Amino acid sequence: MMTPSLPQNTTIVESGDPDARTALVLHGGGGPQTVAPIAGHLAATMHVLTPTHPGWNGTSRPDDIASVAQLATAYLESLLERGERDVVVVGSSIGGWIALEMAIQSAADDRYADLIGAVIDIDGVGAVVEGEPGADFFALDARQLAEAAWHNAELGYRDPTTFTDEQRAIQQSNGETMAAIAGRGISDATLLKRLDAITVPTLVVFGASDRIVTPAYGQAVARAMPGAEFAVIADAGHLPHLEAPGATWAVIDPFVIRIR
């Protein structure tokens, strides 16, 4: 079986100091614009790579990337080809799941042994936690999604009737890609049990008002990893870096300093 790889035309935005430590910032279902504040903040002290996942925003997705695990492998291969090492992988939502899967695979494969130096999982999905089911994402309409994902739903609500045909097509395509890669349940029943393979420094950050996956869910994910840290951001939902950026940086920055 061939190793999955990113398409040659994959968009990867680089920012910050090219001589500094690298941070790979992975977006969730909403696309790369949802993690732009993270990339911008980290670029002040790091070399930041912000890719658009294959299949998002009108890009192509090869047949050999049909799962989160395969996408994680493709990103590891990309880092290997670039000669990177000791990368801090930062993931939001499904990006957090990809980051965890990358750390698991790097721990199991000597070729990737030095690639991942730390993980920051921001309201990541993917695990199945007993008693803490995730929201049925694909069953939510725009209003319900805003109410589940945001502390202040009015900030997150976008009226679908105001979308252009192009915006509507991209949103539909993004949803289809997410379903193809993450499954309709956006989860992997094996993930929680495999997290104990992750030994690099890990920070799990959750918005206190997240109802896509709850802070209790996030705490269970953090407990599954030896030594992982867990923090809750007040007055924020599934994207705390958008709703409460100052409080989010106040948690992330000390962690980044400690792992240097």
Rank of each mutant, 00 (worst) to 15 (best):
R111S: 12
G175L: 12
A220V: 04
R111G: 10
L155G: 00
Q105C: 02
P240R: 13
M178P: 04
R21Q: 10
D141T: 00
F163M: 12
R168L: 13
D64S: 14
R82K: 10
R168F: 10
I186V: 14
Y217A: 02
G126W: 07
G124P: 02
K193E: 15
G227L: 03
V128M: 01
P133D: 04
G185M: 13
E130G: 05
S209W: 15
V129M: 12
G83V: 06
R168D: 02
R111I: 03
I170W: 02
A118C: 01
L79H: 10
W249D: 05
R158D: 02
R85E: 15
A197N: 11
G131F: 01
R61W: 12
Q172G: 03
S78E: 10
T162S: 11
D86S: 11
R211P: 05
E130V: 00
G95T: 01
L115C: 07
F163S: 08
A169P: 07
A36Q: 14
A179Q: 11
V25A: 04
A169C: 05
L76N: 06
A44T: 13
L140K: 03
T50K: 07
R111K: 14
G237C: 03
A153H: 11
G95F: 07
P226M: 10
D188G: 01
L42C: 04
V200G: 10
V129R: 05
L145C: 01
H47F: 12
L71V: 13
G175N: 14
L6S: 00
A148F: 02
T3D: 02
V25Y: 00
V35L: 09
I116C: 03
P37Q: 01
P226Y: 06
A66H: 13
A127H: 01
M102N: 08
A220Q: 14
V87M: 06
V25S: 01
I38S: 14
D86R: 11
A189K: 15
A135S: 05
E14V: 12
A250M: 13
A153C: 06
R85T: 12
A153D: 03
G156S: 01
V232W: 02
F137K: 00
N57Q: 15
G31E: 03
I170D: 05
V200L: 13
V125L: 01
S93G: 06
P215Y: 03
D109E: 12
R223Q: 15
A113L: 12
P215W: 13
A234W: 11
E154C: 00
A108R: 14
G58Q: 06
Q167S: 08
T11D: 02
I259N: 11
G183S: 13
S106G: 01
L192R: 13
P7E: 09
L140N: 06
A244C: 05
H238C: 07
L145E: 07
G96K: 05
Q172F: 11
